[in-house]
Amino acid sequence: KPLSLVHFNSKPSTRQCERLLLGCTTMALVAHSAGFSATYGTYCMFVWCFCFAVTLVVFTLDVTRLHGCMPISWDNFTVAFAMLATLMYVTASIVYPVYFLRSECPSEGCEVRNYRIAVTVCSSVCCFAYGAEVFITRAKPGHVVGYMATVSGLLKVVQAFIACIIFGALANDSEYNRHIPTQYCVVVYSLCFAVTVVVVALTVSGRTSSLRFPFDRFVVIYTFLAVLLYLSAAVVWPVFSFDKKYGTPGRPEDCPRGKCPWDSKLVIAVFTCANLVLYFTDLVYSQRIRFVSHSAV
């Protein structure tokens, strides 16, 4: 039996207005004087513009009540977006000051540094604002909610986001094509990411009830397989990246910052282990969700 849905309070809240105001302020500060450049700056600007645009659409649809005409599960969509926006703002709030903020004044003057400090503060506050929305709308004991509001549903968004980070590191000269086992790891990342996105898409589209198989059982089986696949990748990738026989144990001294294959390999190894932990945690909660949904029959 698919998980039942219940509508949260769909009235436009002051929280949405606060996020819109903070997002608009952040973009205005960057465009006015703080500035951005290179890939990292473009990513940060994309995060702020994307989250602001989607939040504006959500707010508009809430005000006009037009979301009822859309062929999606609105509650699942809004909580999934809030989780995604939180993760995107976390990365932007870290990346921007790391690459653009220094203790000394830049060549453009101290005013630019002050604007960049303000951008960092606004971005960080907006991150907490989206995180608060996830905390408020998450599943609570005794309440029947949409799947994306459960811990398992929220973890699906985090897993997909971390997979995107892994893909970014793979594309950044990771030398994964040098060994067949590392290519196998890429297949693992791609397969798990694809199925996770399908699970989220089915849930947000509200199509889980029309499936020919129990959705909650499928989620448990897939998550179990994902744990096994990521466990193999968490062993294979470090061996063929850092073992003396296949790779380099330590970071080469002549490796430029931001364009070093060893750094990309390290990022992939760390986030592979992180996703392994997330999938294992997801498996535990998926079992709990399945038990509750069946016991309620």
Rank of each mutant, 00 (worst) to 15 (best):
F240M: 05
Y130D: 02
D263V: 05
D263Q: 11
S103R: 12
E104D: 15
F213C: 08
A234M: 07
C17Y: 15
C110M: 09
S295R: 15
V187W: 09
C127I: 02
R113Y: 05
A171E: 12
A82Q: 06
M70H: 07
F59V: 08
P261G: 05
A233E: 00
L87T: 03
I289G: 04
T137Y: 13
V151K: 11
L20C: 07
V121Q: 01
I117P: 01
S93L: 01
N275T: 12
D173Y: 11
R178I: 08
V157M: 06
L66Q: 15
A38G: 11
I136F: 11
F135H: 15
S103D: 14
S286W: 01
A129W: 00
V197F: 06
L278Y: 09
S103F: 12
H32C: 13
F224Q: 05
K259R: 13
E133Q: 11
L229Y: 05
G23V: 02
T64N: 09
P249V: 03
L101D: 02
P71Q: 05
K140G: 08
Y43N: 06
G258A: 08
V54D: 03
F36W: 14
F135S: 13
M88L: 13
R290C: 09
Y115M: 08
G109Y: 08
Y89I: 02
T55D: 08
V145Q: 03
A92M: 05
R113F: 03
Y189E: 01
S33A: 14
F167L: 06
A139T: 07
H294Y: 13
E104C: 13
L170R: 00
Y147D: 03
C69H: 11
I289P: 01
Q159A: 07
T25C: 12
F100R: 02
A82L: 04
